[in-house]
């Protein structure tokens, strides 16, 4: 069923969707970098435990 539907979809639409996915994935990667950066700034480990220097870091900002 899905395969049948897919074959009816124009090449143009497939290319359009591919572009949307590529854009989305590239943006998601940037977000993940931002998030890692923000957590480092916060002095928070990736799995959520507050780091020891959290308070001093906050004052510097």
């Amino acid at each position: 069923e899905d395969a049948a539907e897919e074959s009816n979809v124009s090449a143009e639409l497939i290319a359009h969707r591919k572009r949307l996915v590529d854009e989305w994935n590239a943006w998601r990667r940037r977000c993940k970098d931002d998030l890692a950066e923000e957590r480092k700034k916060k002095g928070t480990e990736v799995d959520g435990e507050p780091g020891p220097q959290e308070e001093t870091k906050e004052e510097i900002e």
Binding site: D2, I14, R17, K18, N25, R28, R29
Partner: peptide
């Protein structure tokens, strides 16, 4: 299982 619009891998 269903993959509407094909096999593209979409990041969460």
């Amino acid at each position: 299982k269903v993959k509407p619009y094909g096999d593209m891998e979409i990041e969460d």
